[in-house]
């Protein structure tokens, strides 16, 4: 407890949701910084730039990935992210966060090794804290 995460990342196109999560992180002081992407492609581009070592940008400790997004949805992002994740020099914890309660989505998300868990929106504040705590203490 008490350890604070350095960088968290949210990939989600719902502005209201993103603002609320940002508030939670600020109020609960869960992470120093927050990366926000409004679709999978923007996030993927960011990670690819890091791999070129041409930037000072950092890798997040944790990613909250939405599924339904325009341009590149969560599934496509997962497909692309798998290809490059081995080139990262640190472990990134990834949670899929969706308001879909479709069991097929849950099943599919769990089939990815790199998905730690499938979280159904809304996430309770306490659950948020727990997740951040766990990841920060491991890091």
């Amino acid at each position: 407890m008490g350890q604070k995460m350095e960088l968290a990342c949210i990939i989600d196109d719902d502005k209201i949701y993103v603002n609320l999560v940002r508030k939670i992180i600020e109020i609960k002081k869960l992470s120093e910084n927050l990366l926000i992407f409004k679709n999978g492609l923007e996030a993927l581009d960011y990670f690819k730039i890091i791999l070129t070592n041409m930037t000072e940008e950092k890798l997040p400790d944790i990613i909250f990935l939405d599924l339904n997004m325009p341009v590149m949805d969560g599934w496509e992002f997962l497909g692309e992210f798998i290809k490059i994740k081995n080139q990262f020099d640190k472990k990134i914890t990834l949670y899929v966060v969706s308001s879909s309660i479709d069991p097929r989505d849950l099943e599919r998300a769990k089939s990815f090794n790199l998905v730690t868990d499938y979280l159904i929106k809304p996430i309770e504040l306490k659950k948020f804290e727990k997740i951040f705590d766990r990841v920060a203490s491991v890091a």
Partner: peptide, 14 residues
């Protein structure tokens, strides 16, 4: 389901 839930979940967060 998804569309209605996404708003209700935001409401719950608020």
């Amino acid at each position: 389901s998804h569309n209605l839930r996404s708003h209700s979940s935001n409401l719950s967060l608020v």
